[in-house]
């Protein structure tokens, strides 16, 4: 900071504004990362769209997908979006123990989603409908699997943040990281809207 300027109000005030701007820049940088992640998913969606009809004589979406099961997964992911929102509200209110509670609830539902997805993939492999069966299934496993990997990474980050909130409390760094994780988590719910619409429901037409 330039000490020769005389119109800086006070060091503490200046530092506060400075760290606040840094935090804002970090969150914006994370948003730009999410936008680049968006492009990864758009390429995978385009690939799936092109290959969806290429079943090579194997099973198609109508034979494989159980919509009531997918509706369950969708509901669970939507609940995690809401519970994470509650954690963020408690964070802004400074209620540390409530933040931990809501994050733990979010992690529990997130783990349930991952478990359901792993079971779904295992069933498909068991039926002989693995990624090697047809171009349709290759594209399906890569697209839905990439989303699943993102949720898994988000889940690990979530558990890390529960630990950091417990250890350090709601300081500036923890708040900034939670703000980034919040964007990441809600973003994955947005991607899932496209997955259930264009992969599962579209596959039934």
């Amino acid at each position: 900071m330039d000490t020769s300027t005389t119109n800086i109000p006070s060091p503490s005030h200046g530092d506060h504004a400075h760290s606040h701007d840094d935090s804002r820049n970090t969150v914006m940088g994370f948003w730009l990362y999410l936008m680049s992640d968006c492009l990864i998913f758009s390429v995978l969606f385009a690939t799936f769209g092109v290959l969806a009809a290429n079943t090579a004589g194997g099973p198609d979406g109508r034979d494989l997908f159980k919509l009531s099961y997918v509706a369950g997964e969708t509901l669970i992911l939507l609940i995690t979006s809401f519970t994470f929102g509650m954690a963020m509200i408690q964070m802004h209110a400074g209620a540390k123990s409530k933040v931990i509670l809501w994050l733990a609830i979010t992690a529990a539902f997130g783990a349930a989603f991952i478990a359901m997805e792993i079971y779904e993939f295992a069933e498909l492999l068991h039926e002989g409908a693995g990624p090697g069966r047809s171009a349709f299934l290759s594209a399906y496993f890569v697209l839905v699997g990439t989303h699943g990997l993102h949720v898994t990474a988000g889940l690990m980050w979530l558990i890390t943040m529960i630990h950091q909130t417990m250890t350090y409390g709601l300081d500036g760094i923890v708040r900034r990281r939670l703000a980034c994780l919040s964007l990441f988590w809600h973003f994955l719910d947005l991607v899932w809207i496209c997955v259930f619409t264009f992969v599962y429901l579209r596959g039934m037409l």
């Binding site: 919509l67 969708t74 509901l75 939507l78 979006s81 929102g85 809207i193 259930f196 429901l201």
Partner: peptide, 17 residues
């Protein structure tokens, strides 16, 4: 946001199922 998302998701699944 949660309730609106629930309704829209329900409509999507209902439209197909």
């Amino acid at each position: 946001g949660f309730v609106a998302s629930l309704i829209l998701t329900g409509l999507s699944f209902g439209a197909i199922m």
